[in-house]
Design a protein around this nucleic acid. Sequence first.
DNA 1: AAACTTCTGTAATGAGCGACACAGATGAGG
DNA 2: CCTCATCTGTGTCGCTCATTACAGAAGTTT
Lengths: 198, 198
Amino acid sequence: MTIGRPRGFDTDEALDRAQSVFCRLGYDAASVSELTKSMGINSPSLYAAFGNKEGLFRAVMDRYMLQRVQYLEAALEASTACEAVQRILAIAARLYSEEKNGASCLVMRGGATYGCTTVADDLSSRRERVETALRERFRQAVVDGDLSSHADPVALARYVMAVLTGMAVQADEGAGREDLEQIAAFAMGGFPAAGERT
Amino acid sequence: MTIGRPRGFDTDEALDRAQSVFCRLGYDAASVSELTKSMGINSPSLYAAFGNKEGLFRAVMDRYMLQRVQYLEAALEASTACEAVQRILAIAARLYSEEKNGASCLVMRGGATYGCTTVADDLSSRRERVETALRERFRQAVVDGDLSSHADPVALARYVMAVLTGMAVQADEGAGREDLEQIAAFAMGGFPAAGERT
DNA sequence: AAACTTCTGTAATGAGCGACACAGATGAGG
DNA sequence: CCTCATCTGTGTCGCTCATTACAGAAGTTT
């Protein structure tokens, strides 16, 4: 053991707790007092161990990426690119829906913060309204017959919403109009055509 | 004109400026002082006109949605669901890449906040690393021949990233594992198979 | 021009934030 | 057992935040 008074908490468990808080609240909205409370330590211990709030976040992210990168690299070992992507998406579906450490993915969600819950709810309901409009349109399409009766309007609406949010994030990341149109073109490939089964 | 001293600023222009700030910084990180500075007014005027910061945000969002919903409804008028989606994605590609009022989409990005730019950069580079891994795998696939030489590894990697972020947001929104797997299945439909042209 | 209503600018308030100074506690090495 | 390096808890620092009190300014109405 190192010299001096030993640490009174388990670093790994503390990082787990911190990860859960960051996942739930995002980076900015996760206050140091909230973090220390969940980690079961006092702020000086946090600063001694991780430097500052950003250092703690980076420590959490490093640990987080380590697991995920292993999954990613394993998936990329697949014999074809197509199968590799298939595996990656399957892993994502499983990991993102796991409740442990809060839903979703820290890296992909980008540390998005919702300090004000009423605002987050407002935005969520606005998105819900768009998704509902899509859903209704797809239901109508099934009635009209330009979508197979096996098509699932709910799932299709969710798919389109996922594509739209993905495009928005890519735009934020610097993607230009042509880049976004390419994404849209790929995404349309997943959309069932008139006669198709789904 | 109403009684009393008339308002010294144009409400619509002020909302435009506020929208730009919210787009750039997100809800939480857009401080009232930053907003008033960009809007060219002082805080008491803001509070008199919009109630509070959240009221201002809602006013911005209402105006914002009004335009977008028009586009959306027009697109949904298309004769088939497939064409409707095609139009929506095309509009999104155009709007999200417009520089006016900042990139991306307020509703879809969900008012995500990046108060700390170094953290945002860190996350961005982590995502970049994933995208690079995908890109390299696709390049290899072209060499191996399991992806057509017409396939664009850069565009494909961006597509997969968009799908992953979209899935993450949906997971945050409450989508379960099966829901995410459905999205993945649809998304795979857009991925070029071995012999295909892209 | 006088009265009244509404907006504007200055400046302040209280709360919460990240970060840290300090003294006491705790265990290892001599 | 004593010294020393390190950790812990209490308390506090300066800062920024959203929000508002107050007094003066600017129009409309009479």
